[in-house]
């Protein structure tokens, strides 16, 4: 599925739009980290929580649930929260 990457993480992917695979958001993030080592920990902490100023949207709907089910037609947007101007 398509995953859109925010500018602070482009140093990992070099592209705004990448493909990742998985049946849940957790699996997609693991696949992203397999392709781009280190990227997951910048977004998700060691307790598997989305970091405070990171937001994840699936098909335009915000989610914090890493166990959310996904299929190949879904679109994931990772954004840097508009916190602090």
């Amino acid at each position: 599925m398509k995953v859109f990457i925010p500018s602070p993480l482009l140093s990992y992917t070099n592209r705004k739009e990448v493909n990742a695979f998985g049946c849940t958001l957790a699996e997609v993030l693991r696949d992203l980290d397999r392709q781009y080592p280190g990227i997951r920990f910048r977004m998700i902490d060691e307790q598997d929580r989305v970091r405070p100023h990171i937001r994840i949207f699936v098909n335009g709907e915000q989610t914090f649930a890493l166990d959310r089910g996904l299929d190949d037609r879904d679109v994931v947007h990772v954004i840097q929260a508009l916190s602090g101007g």
């Binding site: 080592p37 280190g38 902490d45 060691e46 307790q47 598997d48």
Partner: peptide, 20 residues
Amino acid sequence: ESRRPPAFAKTDAAQTPRAV
């Protein structure tokens, strides 16, 4: 980049979770 940066162990529900 460090392959595994410092991170606390994953804690269960009974403990206060910590994140670096």
